[in-house]
Each structure stands twice: as C-alpha cells, then as structure tokens.
Nucleic acid binder design. Structure first.
Length: 569
RNA sequence: CGGGGUGUAGCUCAGCCUGGUAGAGCACUACGUUCGGGACGUAGGAGUCGCAGGUUCAAAUCCUGUCACCCCGACCA
C-alpha cells in the first residue's frame, strides 16, 4: 500500500477516555474508531491485522479437523427459552422484537443454535465426533464496556462446538482443541499460558483458559516454577502447611482494642504481625443464616472456593451489618470464632495457628492467645484463600508465581447441559438413543489484537509480532517528492517487495522525515527500509528492525533478500 | 445498580462561577520558506456550544427535564 493513498491519519492526541495502551495505540495508529460505547469500526489498517489473526485461527482449526460454518448473529427467543437461558442470562443479552412482535436476541454465544443444528442433522454415532466452528460477531451488553476492543460489547469471536457419543470422545476432542490452541497462540507470536479455570455455572469436567501474559491483564494467574501447573488465581489450590499445630503456650486473654476494626489497625495496636491474627468473615448461608469463614490476617478470601462450600450461598454474598449484629451481637471488625454459634470454616493456614489473635464478638475487644481445641472447637479446615506468590505448588513441585494475564481463549467440556435441555441425541452402535456430549471452545479474536499490543509495545508505539503485522516492511523514502532518482529507486524497491510477497508499505507522503519515522514506529511494522539521497548515491539503504537500537546499511540491490532473511530468522 | 464527572471545531481543551459579537493548540485548504527525527510564516475553511423547555431586553453561561459518554465501587470484618 502507498500511504499517500491511505486517507486515515495517525493521531498525536487521543480521546481522554482511552486509558490502556492498546486502546490508545489502536486509535493513534488509525486501526479502529469508536462508533458507540463498546462498538468499534475496524479501519483498513486494523482490519489487516484482524484478518491475519483470523487466518491463523482458521488454518489451525481446519488442521484439527473442525468444520467451518456460519450461524446468524440474531437468534430467536424460543431457542433460549428451551435451554433455559432466556431467563438466566440477564441484561447482558441484548433482546429486541421484530415487526411481528416476535422476540429475538443478538447472540452473545451460539450453543443453542448449534445444538439445534446438531439435533436436526445428526442421527448416528457414525457421524461423530464432529466439531463445528465459526468466526463471527457477538454482542454482549456489558455493564461497563472499556479498554477499547479489549472489553467491547460487539466483538469478533471464534467459537467452536464439538459433539460426541461419550465422555471419552469428548475428552479426546478437548485435548485436540487444547493442542490446536497451543499452536494458534504460538503462531501468533504471543507469550501465553493455558491455565485451569473455573467451569462455573456451566458445569462440566474440565475447563482451561488461555491467557496472554501482560502486566495490564485483568486476571491473576498462578503458575508453578517446578512443573507445568498453572491455574487462574480463583482456581489455584493452596495446601495445608506441613507439620502439626503447635501446642497452646499462652492463656486466652481479652484485650481492649478501641477502634481497631481492620487487621492493619489491630496489628498496630497490639504490635503483632498479621500472620498471628485471624480474620472472621460472615457470609450469607443458603438457609437464611450466616456462615463464618476464617482466614489468616495476611490472606484474602477466594470467593469461588467459598461459594462451593456446603451451606454457603452461591453466588457469595457478605452478610450485611444487621445480620452480623444479629448473629454475633458485635460489629464487623470485632468478630471471631470464640462464642460464635453458627457454622465455621477455617482456612488451612489459619487452622494451624496457635496462640493467635481474633475478635471477641464484642465492640472494641479482641482475644490474644486464642487456640483451636482449647478455646473453641477443632477447626473444620478448608482451602478458602487466594494463593500468593511463594506458596508451594499444589502439585508438590516448585512454588507458585503470580502473573497477570488477558484471557483470550477458553475451552470447555460442556457435557450434556444443552443436549439434554434441547434433546439432541443420536443412535449408538446398539441402536439406543444417547444424548450427545458437547465441548465448546472460544477465542476472542478482536481481543487477541489488543492483547498482542499490550504485550508488544514501547514508548514509540506498537511492536507487532511478525505473524500479525499489517505490513511486513515499511519503505521510508526521504525527499520522495523532489528527487526523481530517489523516487524511481523507492518505487522499484516497492515493486520488488510486493513481488517477493513481503507486504510493503510505501510512505510516499510529502512529509518530513521525522513524521515518517514517528509514524513507522507507531504502526509497529517489523522491518523498515530508509532510502535517502546520501546512501542512494553509494547504492545503500538503511535497514532497521522495529526492535533494533540502530540501523544497518544494506546495498539497495540486496534489500529484498536481506529483509526476507531477517523475517525467516 | 450505587456514587462522582463530562458534553463547546475532526482531536485535546479554555470560556460558564460574575449572562452582552464563540476562542486556543493540533488537524485540514492555498501559497511561500524549510526538508534525515513529529518545521515556520501568511491567508483561509470549519462549531444548531448534546437535545428540549424555562427565566431574561439578551443564555455556551442561570433553572428544569432529557439523552449520550466517562470514571470509581461491588474484599469490609
């Protein structure tokens, strides 16, 4: 492409509401423009990258044997009523009516539609397993769309759905998708991790998320330095500390702690470290009462783990101040296990403490020297907390590190949730009707683009991984408008690069050198060739990779071969 | 959903408190100078001041309503 023919400009300033790097750079580079909250137009430059991501995904899905199809974005309400999600889904589902007053939704996902196809078309176990996928727009009416295309309302997603006669086949299909995803993100040139994930309300046996590692990621992931264990923080198990609990050494003593409502204040008032304190959290029970959850002072509650405990309401809700008072007679800030009458769960780390500090269920009072078994019953120990860096890996090998990640893919063994609800069955080899097992596998295509930028940028702009750069090489002729010889050389080089399939972008604008340099860096094109009168007289051009600190001189005649060698290196 | 904030030129913003001819920088157009790291000069085009209603001789400015957008919160024991 010739930049003089490209009408959409790069920007020096961006709207004040663009907060994250990828959003700012995508606006500045002229990749996207906002249409409405969470909805973006992909401009020609951005679309080139998006298409490259799509192509890699498509190639690897095809290679894994998946079959591409395309389902409508708009879906009839009946299907959603049949699966039960019309009522479950809530306001994220964009609903509307057509002129005949029939209800529809803009699809946030396509389990219902594909299950409908499967039950109509699939008759025999001989047609299984099969995996259908599409790359297509979704709409989720997010509470708070933000960060540009990272959390948009309308976005492009690759969604795949597999159908199987039994669980073993599902597990095999799932494994193949795991491998395909690994190839996809490797080819995209991204640093990523597959992590164990919460299968949440959808249920099923297994679920993994694929995260692009970036400090700006919204998710915390835990991984072991001793083996390949990796999990979303909300799923990362913590182990009970080794060894037996120490015997009580101190007497139980009630101490006045006026105003010490938080662990930090308590530690200051009593001059004890937070690891010697426990905090007591009351959450709503599923029977209308409250349940006490007890953690060591320096640990955080893990809501996903907590809401799975028997007796705890799901989703997890902290008990309101009034219920706290009714259950304990005390105010939040002074709660403790001693004298508490309800159900108590204790995190492993808190359960192995001796002579700890806890609230006395009385305003401005705490206990010191508290001990399980002596002052209160033996603890019912569970894993309740978030893992922290340095915890031993739950596999027993290595210790956990915590990193930030951007979730770009998610694979699920759905089981029979939808096939049951929608009666999708085939005949097995005995002639019996069996409900199909399903898996589903998503990749946020538009989010991948943003995540790639979050992971690959510097102060001057984007630094594209080669596989998804909109152009491979940018040609920057200086004095293109005035020097006929230089223009001829630049045009010839441009044609040579095109002929070589190296996707050149020619900056033939009548602009100053600084402007061209700055824009070439902003756009993040991997290879840059600068053509100037001085070098040209000696038959030389300058080559510089986007990651290089300094340019190298290359003979004009060898420029194409040089870039080709660099791009396959 | 709760709390806070913002709507003025394509973009970033000033002007509003204290009502009186709508501004700056960037971007854009033309010409000239400049020309290997985001140039300069001159001239110019461009805004129903989000929308509706009200107060007033007079509203971007004050009042009411409305729409749009943004930020924060949903771990506190």
């Amino acid at each position: 492409m010739r930049l003089s023919q490209y009408p959409i400009l790069t920007l020096k300033e961006v709207p004040a509401d663009a907060e994250v790097v990828s959003h700012r750079l995508m606006l500045r580079a002229g990749m996207i423009r906002r249409l409405a909250a969470g909805m973006y137009t992909w401009l020609p430059l951005g679309l080139r990258t998006l298409r490259k991501v799509e192509r890699i995904i498509r190639e690897e899905m095809d290679r894994a044997g998946a079959l591409e199809l395309s389902m409508p974005t708009v879906q009839p309400a009946e299907l959603w009523q049949e699966s039960g999600r019309w009522n479950q889904f809530g306001p994220e589902l964009l609903r509307f009516k057509d002129r005949h007053d029939r209800e529809f939704a803009y699809g946030p996902t396509h389990e219902e539609v594909i299950t409908d196809i499967a039950r109509r078309e699939l008759r025999s176990h001989k047609q299984l397993p099969v995996n259908f996928y599409q790359i297509q727009s979704k709409f989720r009416d997010e509470i708070r769309p933000r960060f540009g295309v990272m959390r948009a309302r309308e976005f492009l997603m690759k969604d795949a759905y597999s159908f199987h006669v039994d669980e073993a086949s599902l597990a095999e299909g799932y494994r193949q998708m795991h491998d395909a995803y690994t190839r996809i993100f490797t080819r995209l040139g991204l640093k990523f991790r597959a992590v164990q994930a919460d299968s949440g309300s959808i249920g099923g046996n297994a679920s993994q998320e694929f995260h692009v590692l970036a400090d700006s990621g919204e998710d915390a992931i835990a991984f072991s330095d001793g083996d390949d264990y990796a999990a979303n923080l909300e799923m990362a198990a913590t182990l009970a500390p080794p060894g037996a609990r120490a015997a009580p050494a101190l007497p139980l003593t009630k101490v006045a702690t006026p105003g010490a409502r938080t662990i930090a204040e308590l530690c200051r008032v009593l001059d004890v470290p937070p690891e010697r304190c426990v905090k007591t959290l009351l959450v709503d029970g599923d029977d209308g009462g409250v349940v006490a959850l007890i953690l060591r002072g320096d640990h955080e509650l893990n809501a996903v783990k907590a809401q799975k405990l028997p007796g705890v309401a799901s989703p997890l809700r902290m008990a309101g101040a009034e219920r706290v008072r009714a259950a304990t007679g005390a105010e939040p800030g002074y709660l403790g296990p001693i004298g508490f009458g309800g159900k108590i769960y204790v995190d492993h780390a808190a359960a192995c403490l001796a002579d700890f500090v806890c609230g006395a269920n009385e305003k401005d009072q705490h206990f010191t020297g508290a001990n399980w078994g002596r002052d209160v019953g033996p603890p019912e120990a569970r894993d309740l907390r978030n893992a922290i860096a340095g915890d031993p890996s739950p596999t027993g090998r290595g210790t956990l590190q915590i990193a930030r990640g951007i979730e770009v893919g998610h694979i699920f063994q759905l089981g029979r949730k939808y096939s049951d609800a929608m009666n999708a069955a085939v005949l097995d080899d005995q002639g019996r009707s069996v409900t199909m097992y399903m898996g589903c596998y998503g990749i946020g295509v538009t989010r991948v683009v943003a995540a790639a930028i979050e992971q690959n940028h510097d102060a001057n702009g984007i630094v594209w991984p080669q596989a998804i750069a909109p152009f491979q090489v940018v040609l920057v002729p200086l004095n293109y408008q005035k020097s006929e010889a230089l223009r001829a050389a630049a045009d010839a080089l441009y044609r040579d690069f095109e002929a070589a399939g190296l996707e050149p972008l020619l900056d033939d604008r009548d602009a100053r050198a600084g402007v061209k340099f700055a824009d070439s860096e902003l756009l993040g094109i991997p290879h840059r060739i600068v053509i100037g009168d001085r070098g040209l007289a000696a038959g030389l051009v300058e080559y510089r990779h986007r990651r290089d600190a300094a340019p190298t001189e290359v003979p004009l005649a060898e420029a194409v071969a040089f870039v080709r060698a660099k791009s396959t290196a």
